[in-house]
Amino acid sequence: MMRRLFPAPLLSLALLALWLVLTNPYSLGNWLMAVVLGIAVPLFTQSLRPTPVRFSHPWVAFKLFMQVGKDVIGSNFRVLYGTLSPGDRMAKGGFVIVPLDLRDPNGLAVLAAIMCVIPGTVWSELALDGSELLVHVFDLKDPDLDIAMIKTRYERPLMEIFE
């Protein structure tokens, strides 16, 4: 019974907390709306989730979260510098093909979010068999270095968390 009402309990708690943070006055109405959202959204979106999430290694997840935050801040400055640079030093973007070892659909979804959150990188295309990822990099100097960075900073921790 409990599993049917709360198919994703962590998502329910996260939605409840997020609603309360976004609607500052903690009135009874806001608490009721938070509870309704925490129950209804996971129930109605259950069919959209490809596989159940097996989340392990929370410390690795925390370190990945901190790494992404650090990379977002650093990339903002690199993109700003590349945008404001004169013509001869202007950033030259390009595409890299990243071979993937990560196969979990939830891990791939998180990787897609990371690639789109970090300024200067965009997840462009995933091969049909899931073996390769096409990423556009704002300032592509060394493709091998960018590929290695994506694999070590993001893919490896995601594999540890989701697989």
Rank of each mutant, 00 (worst) to 15 (best):
residue 90 M to N: 11
residue 106 N to Q: 00
residue 54 R to Q: 11
residue 58 P to N: 09
residue 66 M to Y: 09
residue 62 F to I: 12
residue 36 V to Q: 04
residue 94 G to M: 01
residue 67 Q to R: 14
residue 22 L to R: 03
residue 103 R to Y: 06
residue 61 A to I: 02
residue 69 G to T: 02
residue 84 L to R: 08
residue 38 G to T: 08
residue 79 V to R: 04
residue 123 W to M: 05
residue 103 R to G: 05
residue 98 V to S: 04
residue 121 T to G: 03
residue 49 R to W: 12
residue 80 L to G: 14
residue 123 W to F: 14
residue 109 A to K: 01
residue 65 F to W: 11
residue 62 F to W: 10
residue 92 K to A: 09
residue 87 G to H: 11
residue 76 N to A: 02
residue 80 L to A: 15
residue 45 T to M: 14
residue 120 G to D: 08
residue 105 P to M: 05
residue 126 L to Y: 00
residue 121 T to M: 00
residue 51 T to G: 04
residue 53 V to W: 09
residue 14 A to W: 13
residue 53 V to M: 14
residue 107 G to K: 04
residue 23 T to N: 15
residue 125 E to P: 00
residue 46 Q to Y: 12
residue 84 L to D: 08
residue 110 V to K: 06
residue 37 L to D: 10
residue 83 T to V: 09
residue 95 F to T: 03
residue 26 Y to D: 09
residue 36 V to G: 11
residue 118 I to V: 15
residue 102 L to A: 04
residue 69 G to R: 01
residue 18 L to W: 12
residue 106 N to E: 01
residue 40 A to K: 10
residue 123 W to A: 07
residue 81 Y to I: 11
residue 33 M to R: 07
residue 115 M to W: 04
residue 15 L to H: 05
residue 78 R to W: 07
residue 122 V to Q: 01
residue 113 A to Q: 14
residue 86 P to S: 15
residue 123 W to G: 06
residue 115 M to K: 02
residue 17 A to T: 14
residue 120 G to C: 05
residue 21 V to K: 05
residue 44 F to T: 15
residue 120 G to H: 04
residue 123 W to N: 06
residue 15 L to G: 00
residue 49 R to N: 12
residue 82 G to H: 05
residue 50 P to F: 08
residue 126 L to W: 07
residue 48 L to N: 12
residue 52 P to G: 12
residue 97 I to Q: 09
residue 94 G to N: 06
residue 33 M to I: 14
residue 28 L to N: 01
residue 71 D to M: 09
residue 43 L to G: 01
residue 104 D to K: 01
residue 56 S to D: 09
residue 79 V to F: 05
residue 104 D to A: 04
residue 40 A to M: 15
residue 122 V to G: 02
residue 100 L to Y: 03
residue 58 P to L: 09
residue 103 R to W: 02
residue 97 I to G: 02
residue 63 K to Q: 13
residue 97 I to F: 03
residue 68 V to M: 06
residue 21 V to L: 14
residue 120 G to E: 08
residue 15 L to R: 04
residue 47 S to F: 14
residue 114 I to W: 02
residue 54 R to F: 10
residue 13 L to K: 03
residue 25 P to A: 06
residue 106 N to H: 07
residue 103 R to C: 00
residue 66 M to E: 09
residue 21 V to T: 09
residue 71 D to S: 13
residue 64 L to K: 05
residue 91 A to R: 00
residue 66 M to V: 15
residue 42 P to C: 10
residue 46 Q to T: 10
residue 125 E to A: 12
residue 124 S to W: 08
residue 18 L to T: 11
residue 42 P to I: 10
residue 29 G to Q: 13
residue 66 M to C: 15
residue 115 M to V: 02
residue 33 M to C: 12
residue 100 L to T: 00
residue 69 G to H: 00
residue 115 M to T: 06
residue 66 M to I: 15
residue 108 L to R: 10
residue 96 V to H: 06
residue 84 L to F: 14
residue 47 S to T: 11
residue 83 T to D: 02
residue 105 P to C: 03
residue 14 A to T: 15
residue 112 A to L: 09
residue 59 W to H: 11
residue 123 W to L: 01
residue 40 A to C: 14
residue 15 L to E: 03
residue 55 F to M: 04
residue 63 K to M: 14
residue 62 F to N: 02
